[in-house]
Design a protein around this nucleic acid. Structure first.
Length: 338
DNA sequence: GGCTACGTTCGA
DNA sequence: TCGAACGTAGCC
């Protein structure tokens, strides 16, 4: 599970207590570092080109290296290629914050189990599925809005809502947490307690959300990715099975294969259901195949996704996630989502 | 029906 | 134990 923690660790240098020992050299300077990250988000085409160029360089490099006397082992290739592109991402093993380039530059997203047409959740108006921000009507505003001082969240809002049962606007509103929200409500609906206020550090809301998810859930042995996966699976399975099950944290104690109790009791049929990518882990967020790994090179016969895009959750055994019962802290963490 | 990719099997 | 190959589910 250490790899999960490292792969989804999006903690900011000040968002946690450095309990895990490593030190961050990154000291965000508002007004200096932030625009750098903004660039990476508002210019997805540039990011894509950069990544493609990087992959190509890797491929060329390793191709030449293989011909040389000391070829690189596959693990070394993987370790090198898997290194995040962005400086800040090297600290977190993820992009500075999750910009859905796939959405921004038009690639159709992989079907992830974030939700479906309906997820049986009540008490929240949701006119569209979460991935509704993939629709064209969101793309222009997401990708073309100037990054004004007050609307820097706008291009991010849709992505921050990936996997969340809220609309992009709703998500953004929650993340902004206007001052009119009472402090108590802010913890519950706007942001998390124990988190640095958004205004103090110019960080994308997604980073902060995941920071809390990590720090809160991780302490109980449940990583953010695990929990998000479970939530997503609950939603997805409700959609597929047609049975009614709530998305409440209590439901997360259920089958990690994404089966509600009714479905899991059906026997092998539900167990055979293919799992879907969580859509939130670093590999799921990777947009392009490396073209170098064995899966890419052997795509015709291997039928496998690029090793660097293989969902962290799917790498685990199907039953591994349910061995860790979500703690109350994890439940509190995800109260925000529902 | 084609494509992608998850799950399983099997060999090294 | 790991990775390649295969079957096939899921999606379009």
């Amino acid at each position: 599970m250490a790899n999960m923690s490292s792969s989804v660790c999006m903690e900011t240098p000040h968002a946690h207590g450095h309990a895990h020992g490593h030190t961050h050299n990154y000291n965000p300077t508002p007004g200096r570092d932030f625009p750098l990250q903004i660039d990476s988000c508002v210019n997805p085409v540039l990011d894509y080109s950069a990544q493609m160029e990087r992959y190509r360089s890797f491929a060329t490099f390793y191709k030449n290296s293989t011909a040389a006397a000391a070829p690189f082992p596959q693990t070394a290739k993987i370790a090198r290629i898997a290194t995040p592109l962005f400086p800040s991402a090297r600290l977190s093993a993820m992009p500075p914050w999750p910009c859905d380039n796939a959405m921004l530059w038009g690639r159709k997203p992989a079907a992830v189990n974030v939700n479906g047409p309906h997820t049986h959740r009540t008490g929240m108006s949701r006119a569209e599925p979460v991935n509704m921000h993939m629709s064209g009507k969101h793309i222009p505003q997401d990708s073309a809005l100037p990054m004004g001082a007050d609307n820097f969240l706008s291009p991010l809002a849709a992505e921050q809502c990936r996997g969340l049962p809220v609309t992009g606007a709703d998500c953004m509103n929650r993340l902004k947490c206007p001052p009119s929200v009472p402090p108590g409500e802010a913890d519950r609906g706007g942001t998390f307690g124990g988190m640095p206020p958004l205004g103090g550090l110019s960080l994308p809301p997604g980073v902060i959300v995941m920071t809390t998810l990590h720090s809160g859930a991780g302490s109980s042995g449940v990583t953010m990715s695990d929990s998000a996966f479970q939530i997503a699976n609950v939603a997805a399975d409700c959609q597929h099975s047609g049975s009614s099950c709530s998305g409440s944290p209590a439901a997360l104690n259920g089958n990690a294969n994404g089966s509600c109790s009714s479905a899991s009791s059906n026997g092998s049929g539900a167990a055979k259901r293919k799992r879907k990518r969580c859509g939130v882990c670093a590999p799921c967020r990777r947009l392009i195949n490396c073209g170098v790994c064995s899966s890419c090179r052997n795509r015709k016969t291997g039928h496998q996704i690029c090793k660097f895009r293989k969902c962290e959750e799917l790498k685990k055994k199907p039953g591994s996630t349910m061995e860790r019962a979500p703690s109350a802290g994890a439940a509190d963490t995800f109260r925000w989502f529902f």
